[in-house]
Computed example of a mutant assay.
Amino acid sequence: MATRIRPSSKRCAVIGGSGFLGRHLVEKLLEKGYTVTVFDIRQSYELPGVAFHVGDLCDKQALLTALQDVSLVFHCASPAPASDDRALFQKVNVDGTRIVIQACQERGVQKLVLTSSASVVFEGTDIKDGKEELPYAKKPIDYYTETKIQQEKLVLEACDKDKGFLTVAIRPHGIFGPQDPQLVPILVDTARRGKMKFIIGDGSNLVDFTFVENVVHGHILAAEHLKPDSPLCGKAYHITNDEPVRFWDFMSQVLVGLGYDAPRYHLPYQLVYGIALLLWLVALLLRPLVRIKPTFTPMRVALAGTHHYYSCARAKEDMGYRPPVSLKEGITRTVESYPHLRKGV
């Protein structure tokens, strides 16, 4: 009887490796001596030694091909939270994740690290120093969050020490950094249209923003500490910069760094939230006739006007996590990476 050769622990696959977080993760894994395969719906770059597989997450055969001889899988594929395509969230975050788990199990993958989100416990009200023990949101703030909750449950419940399949979920919050196609470009576009003059609420609300390299560091630490006798098995971990900052101070630092004015006029939080809720309901009612996409959604108002920051104590204790890049340095490096978005350019 032939002996089955276990894949090398340094052979890994990054599902969603063409995205913002995925590319940073791939580059750091290569630095650390891993052999990396990327599976994504598109290929956005080339790197020596990286094998790219272009395919649909719901195509199990394509996944099985990409996961040949792989022992570790990072699953960070997800539509952008700003999307309003409910069917796409369901397909990628839930149906696709279910197929990822099946493909991993069939290929004998030993570890699966999921990129989840700290928003899985957020309902639009204040969270201060939130722990992982907080219950999942009963009323998620959007469909992205609703499907991320389902996704995280699927991955963590699939953990099976007896069968040699270990899983862990990383919950980052407010990822930013060079090459980010979302936060900074959207912020600058809003400023250029003259819509970044107002602060929602009194401006005192603290939020976690996490530099992308710190998120990558948390993923790799989790993978390397994920063993049958470790506390990581089937658990979720918050990964942040561990430096809560006033939401509007962070936005102002990025804007001013790029030459734009910081917002300075205050609007009452409850008033803005009420207007956003009304506009959202109107858009929902009119959807069969006309498609309206309000700029201010209840989710965006809640994210901008409430406290939501999380404890990294569990990650510190169980895997020795410490953010390598400070918030100040992360903002500086991010601003410097967008010379083309400076005012006047």
Rank of each mutant, 00 (worst) to 15 (best):
G201A: 06
E213M: 09
Y260T: 03
V212H: 01
N214V: 02
L271T: 07
R193V: 06
F250Q: 00
H219Q: 03
V245T: 15
E213N: 07
T240R: 01
V216P: 09
P263V: 09
L279T: 10
D249R: 03
D229Y: 06
G203D: 06
A236R: 08
L183I: 05
V215W: 00
L232T: 09
M196G: 08
N214Y: 08
A262V: 09
G274M: 13
L232D: 08
K197G: 14
V212K: 01
L271I: 09
I186T: 15
R264W: 12
Y260N: 00
I200A: 01
H217R: 11
P268D: 03
I199E: 00
Y269I: 03
A223G: 12
T190M: 14
L279F: 13
L279M: 13
H225V: 10
F247V: 01
L277S: 15
Y260I: 07
L221N: 01
K197H: 12
A276P: 07
L267P: 11
T190E: 14
D249S: 08
S230Y: 09
N214A: 05
L226S: 06
G194W: 05
S230F: 10
D261H: 09
F198P: 02
A222R: 04
A262Q: 03
G194I: 11
D208I: 06
V215K: 00
H219F: 03
M251N: 15
I220N: 01
L206R: 11
Q182I: 11
F198S: 11
L267D: 04
E213V: 05
P263C: 11
R246T: 06
S230N: 10
H238R: 02
L278F: 15
I220A: 02
V207K: 10
D261Q: 11
P263A: 15
V216F: 02
I199Q: 00
T240E: 01
A283G: 00
S230W: 12
D249K: 02
Y269F: 15
M196Y: 10
P181W: 06
V184T: 11
L267E: 01
A223I: 03
D229I: 05
P244F: 06
P181Q: 04
R264H: 15
P228M: 09
R246M: 13
R246L: 07
W280Q: 14
Y237S: 09
A262F: 08
L183N: 04
I199V: 09
E243G: 14
S204D: 08
V216A: 02
P231A: 14
G234T: 00
L258D: 04
A283F: 00
P263Q: 04
P231H: 14
L226A: 04
E213I: 05
Q182N: 12
G194D: 08
H219L: 02
V212C: 04
V212Y: 01
S204G: 09
D202R: 07
I239D: 05
I239Q: 04
I220K: 01
P263F: 08
L281S: 15
Y260W: 04
